[in-house]
Design a binder for these strands. Structure first.
Lengths: 132, 132
DNA sequence: AATAAAACAGTAACGATTACTGATTTTGAT
DNA sequence: ATCAAAATCAGTAATCGTTACTGTTTTATT
């Protein structure tokens, strides 16, 4: 049996991610976990983020900023990127359109479609307020 | 007036992109344009790809491989990424779902949604054939 | 043709991520 | 609880895509 040893550091990384809804980058994870484990290495953060996402415990996301973002919420959901402040928000919309989108699109496609992800962009609620 | 001088190199880059439907990376553009302009610099390729996309003449895309891909087709359309071979294909599906998606999702969202892009993934037609 | 601005080639620098190394921690069995 | 093997760690060096810099060449205009 492949024995995966769950270190304190890995747990701290996962725990931190679960407290955040804004999909932090590896750098942000590092800076925050370091408050609990001052000696944690940036390499450890990267390795564990990769490990956790390979195991399916977290999601790795790619935004336009070119950085990898991480999300402890592994349910399928969409994301919104604010073009003003760069913040990322979850978009939870339930619709049949989305549920059956893969099948519908697959009917006109020779390959096999197994999933999709939709990225929205615009101005976030916060920025809408400030920029009157 | 901002006088933009259209160099042979920039034209070659745009022309090459227009012949391709598979959204090449900067590296691929470089290797191909170099066959016509053996002394072209990789920096020139990057600078012009950025310039062209800033001018709206081409599209810059971000895929899961972490690389930037470029597309001379600036119409709004979706993309498909093959998880097997990594190739990228266009997905042209016209539907009211997609047309009015922004408005529908915006109705349950405090900010302003100005657009979205959907990435599909799965097995491409080619890989479906070979991996019987 | 002469000129100034823009673009170039070549190279160095940058930043995010990954790989390496020897020390430490975790796990499961004694 | 103790111990050894395997996994993980901290720290650092290396990698790789991309951007910035510098001095030269091309472009468009007079």
């Amino acid at each position: 049996m492949a024995s995966i040893k769950y270190s304190r550091q890995r747990k701290a990384i996962k725990d931190f991610l679960m407290t955040r809804k804004d999909h932090p980058t590896a750098e942000t994870v590092y800076l925050n976990v370091r408050e609990t484990y001052p000696h944690i290495s940036l390499g450890t953060v990267y390795r564990n983020l990769t490990l956790l996402s390979d195991m399916g415990e977290i999601q790795r996301l790619h935004f336009k900023d070119g950085l990898d973002h991480f999300d402890a919420d592994i349910r399928s959901h969409s994301h919104f990127l604010c073009t003003e402040c760069g913040s990322v928000l979850d978009i939870d919309y339930q619709s049949d359109d989305d549920l059956y989108l893969d099948e519908r699109v697959n009917s006109g496609f020779d390959g096999r479609i197994t999933g999709h992800i939709t990225y929205f962009q615009g101005i976030c609620p916060e920025c809408c307020k400030t920029s009157v």
